[in-house]
């Protein structure tokens, strides 16, 4: 059954069409990678799904519920979706532990001890147990991004949205974040990730969608979309990526 179903999404910014009749379906436990040039609409799509942007047309269904209905409480929807940003967006005035337990305690009304125990367990699992009491500015970029992923996971989301989560990282730190996402996939997490890491998309995604000018131009299994693309625009994009040495 489809966990997420987007139909005919349209979004414009000041006359600029960013999403144009875009369709996307994500099944439960499926990992979908969104690829495409900057400005192709990947980030906007993720922000629309998380109701951070208002749609200009189309519908988004999560678990069969139309979440694009303006009568839906966006806070309730976001509790079921975890989002991780390119720039980590950790709260600088809170320690790692406080960053992670903020939503469980304030949104889900869990007891402090319970929320902290869960946070420490998640941190231990990704090898950051020793950093629980540190502040974000004491962590490397890769560590910050892993904390941001843990923070999203602490809400036990149905769906994770990852917006170019390795783009701001030094190359030698990318691996630790990708390994964590791989573990999430093994645990059965449903994920939609916008990425420039083609090798990783091929590795981890069940389906790759190539976006261009706000539309899904081509989608399918990674071997097909990245290996034998049928659309000229996909081929052109991949050729540029290969020339840049990124595939």
């Amino acid at each position: 059954m489809a966990l997420l179903r987007c139909r005919g999404l349209r979004k414009e910014f000041a006359g600029n069409i960013v999403l144009d009749r875009l369709d996307l379906t994500v099944a439960e436990h499926q990992v979908v990678a969104l690829i495409g040039a900057s400005g192709s609409g990947k980030s906007t799509l993720l922000r629309c799904v998380n109701l951070l942007e208002e749609l200009d047309d189309g519908t988004i269904e999560l678990d069969g519920e139309d979440i694009s209905d303006p009568r839906v409480d966006p806070d309730r929807v976001r509790r079921r979706i975890g989002m991780v940003f390119q720039a980590y967006n950790l709260f600088p005035h809170l320690s790692v532990l406080e960053n992670i337990t903020l939503a469980p305690r304030r949104v889900h009304r869990r007891a402090r001890a319970e929320a902290e125990a869960q946070a420490r367990e998640l941190l231990d699992r990704v090898g950051l147990g020793a950093k629980a009491d540190a502040y974000p500015d004491r962590l490397s970029g890769g560590q910050q991004q892993r904390v941001a992923i843990v923070r999203a996971l602490a809400n036990s989301p149905r769906l994770m949205l990852l917006d170019e989560v390795t783009s701001a990282l030094d190359p030698e730190l990318v691996g630790e974040v990708l390994a964590m996402i791989r573990d999430l996939k093994a645990d059965g997490m449903t994920m939609v990730l916008a990425t420039h890491e083609m090798g990783f998309a091929r590795d981890v995604a069940d389906e790759v969608c190539f976006l261009d000018a706000g539309r899904v131009v081509e989608s399918g299994p990674p071997e097909q979309v990245l290996g034998e693309p049928t659309q000229p625009r996909t081929r052109q994009f991949l050729r540029r990526i290969i020339e840049a040495g990124r595939l």
Partner: peptide
């Protein structure tokens, strides 16, 4: 604004 986006996406009101 990214701090607000992060907080809202965690479900905080």
């Amino acid at each position: 604004p990214s701090q607000l986006a992060a907080a809202r996406s965690l479900g905080l009101t």
